[in-house]
Write a protein that binds this DNA or RNA. Structure first.
Lengths: 139, 139
DNA sequence: CCCGATTGGTTGCGATTTGCAACTCTTCGG
DNA sequence: CCGAAGAGTTGCAAATCGCAACCAATCGGG
């Protein structure tokens, strides 16, 4: 089932590591709920969207909920799906730094007061910044 | 060229958002340098690996460097590639929380002292934790 | 200096996966 | 009750992937 069973990175990538799943999750965090919401925001093909929504639901990232006043289905993030927020934020912040020309405009993530969300940096328990050179994977 | 030109998440996903690129970057951060290093660690097909290494180099995530004592090529992360560390860390931490059964063993990321790297949480400038519900994307 | 092993790919081809368009079935609004 | 959306499904054609075989350049030992 897993690409590399002992590595949490590989497992996560197996579950959500394709272009469309990540964009679907992004849009769910931005308020998308219906099939056509997702289809229009991402531009994904409808059959692939149906497949991805099924897989994300099967992996407990999304769930189907009954709309309050009707029969039409809605998709909502589960607790695990909402917990992907940090992943989406780091992808966004990397893109802002490295996928835009200097001065090229892009959207930004702000909190309820309108303040820009600070860059997420891995740190040691004492607060010192960490990099791949100052960390190691222990089996 | 871009799936959604104004969204930094979409741009990042366009560049590195496939299963193999992310695993290649993970392995590069873990010390992989040669073609066969990457091939053996990921298990990727050789032609696909050659293609991904080319693309990652074209997008300035990896670069080819001459090995000190010889002609054989090595791949190294660029500054932009090393800056993906936070992305790999959040993917890893999500996987640890949601892709393993309770009690199922997995590798962990530790700093030079051996201390486990704390969970990365998006926060407001004042340190308050943020979620997708307490943030908004401003165009 | 020569030979076999290793490294770093490339090529061909069959198996999957995607994307597009058309079609269906249900539901919502008036 | 009728027409328009919404939510998928189906049938292809085209693009990707994965495997195995092949190849050229090193490297390493004798």
């Amino acid at each position: 089932m897993w690409t590399d069973p002992s590595c949490p990175v590989a497992r996560t990538v197996d579950l959500i590591g394709d272009r469309w799943s990540l964009l679907i999750i992004r849009d769910a965090m931005d308020g998308a709920r219906s099939f056509t919401d997702f289809q229009q925001r991402t531009g994904i093909a409808r059959n692939i969207l149906a497949d991805r929504l099924r897989k994300l639901a099967a992996h407990d990232v999304l769930e189907q909920v009954e709309a309050p006043s009707g029969k039409r289905r809605q998709y909502a993030l589960t607790a695990a799906g909402r917990d992907l927020f940090a992943v989406i934020v780091t992808l966004r912040q990397w893109g802002e730094r490295h996928a835009f020309e200097a001065g090229e405009p892009h959207s930004v993530l702000v909190d309820e007061r309108g303040a820009v969300v600070p860059t997420l940096v891995p740190t040691a328990p004492d607060g010192a910044p960490l990099t791949s050179e100052t960390t190691v994977v222990r089996k």
